[in-house]
Design a binder for these strands. Structure first.
Lengths: 197, 197
DNA sequence: ATTCTGTGTTCACTATGATGCACGCAATTC
DNA sequence: GAATTGCGTGCATCATAGTGAACACAGAAT
């Protein structure tokens, strides 16, 4: 999937590498082991271990297994071990600070905290009867993803157009002129995700 | 790999590859999935899956994770699986509406067209009274956005927890253990977006 | 017999996992 | 001061994980 060429192959940040990255350093430090010690105990090279800890590499299962065994734990225990800090950020329903556009035809509410996520934004769009959201092209490579919560909408991107009912979803290029049009009576509500590349 | 001297390079024979190879085909067959179906559900190419099943490839943690997720199980459960895994029922609904997990407490419907956008997924989650969705860490850098459509839910990420009412939304790291818990009477419905980095 | 549609495999290719070795940096020791 | 030891990281390199497209083989419909 995904496309050939460009695009990101295996999402850069490694999945597992991430998990490992998080705990590996803790585990290692907790036992007072150096990279070299762990390398010898596990049979994985120092450089690889270093890269994994820094999240720059995405180890294979074989390597992950060796590391887990060096710590005397299973792979599951190593990888799913509980984690570090995290916070839950909340935007309350009535918080108008996040209304980014509001007129009688179209109300857009930002659900993702601004500034925090640079390349992804999450919106709730409410279109009044006859309302539409028309956008000029975004940055190159931007895609938009939406799902219809209520009502019927027509999605237009470049020369293409599709009509969607509640529960339907669609993705399309957002780096061309595009529009979301309320195609039926009554209010339409859609959730919208922009992904910048 | 290193290791004790010579020995064979890496290739086959790794514990991990072996386990996966062994169980993957069983799991897939047990659910009546084709390579293509699993490829679409997991985001891993048919060819890679084929090679893994035949023991010709040693997957990275990233793809192992994706495969595990496609089966609705943890990586640990996948690789160490004795076979007796929790019965995760998978139901097809409509076009790209795709039930990815379904039990009496929690129903997850995939809204994003699978395989179109690999690094973003969009779900509708319905939690029965008393139900909860508990997830082990996703990939490094993964964040989850959610907005509450109906009911009240408590979002737990690592040591943090917030309670949300309809219209509220939240974002939090998903690369640590996290949970969405129905915190009131009646069904709760939330929309969920996963962004992989 | 021909088309299909769907299955799994093999191919050429690119991205990157994984390595050994060399380097920079501190804290010891001479 | 200069060497030494131990630490982690940055190369250049090779091996291979991962992919899309083409392939071969089935069974079903025409």
């Amino acid at each position: 999937m995904t496309k050939p060429a460009s695009a990101k192959p295996s999402s850069a940040a490694d999945p597992a590498g991430g998990h490992l990255c998080r705990h590996l350093k803790q585990l290692r430090a907790g036992r007072g082991w150096s990279l070299d010690a762990l390398a010898k105990a596990s049979g994985v090279s120092r450089s690889m271990l270093s890269q994994i800890e820094r999240g720059r590499a995405n180890p294979t299962l074989a390597v992950a297994f060796r590391i887990a065994r060096a710590f005397g734990m299973t792979l599951g225990a190593l990888v799913e071990s509980p984690g570090a800090t995290s916070a839950v950020e909340v935007i309350r329903a009535g918080d108008h600070a996040y209304h980014y556009r509001s007129d009688k035809n179209c109300r857009i509410r930002t659900l993702s905290p601004l500034n925090l996520e640079k390349d992804v934004e999450f919106y709730e769009v409410r279109l009044a009867e006859g309302g539409a959201l028309r956008s000029s092209p975004h940055f190159e490579g931007t895609r938009e993803f939406l799902t219809v919560q209520k009502g019927r909408v027509r999605v237009e991107s470049a020369s293409d157009a599709e009509e969607l009912a509640p529960g339907d979803s669609a993705t399309y290029r957002a780096d061309v002129p595009h529009a979301i049009v309320n195609a039926a009576k009554g209010e339409a509500v859609v959730f919208l995700v922009d992904i910048y590349r």
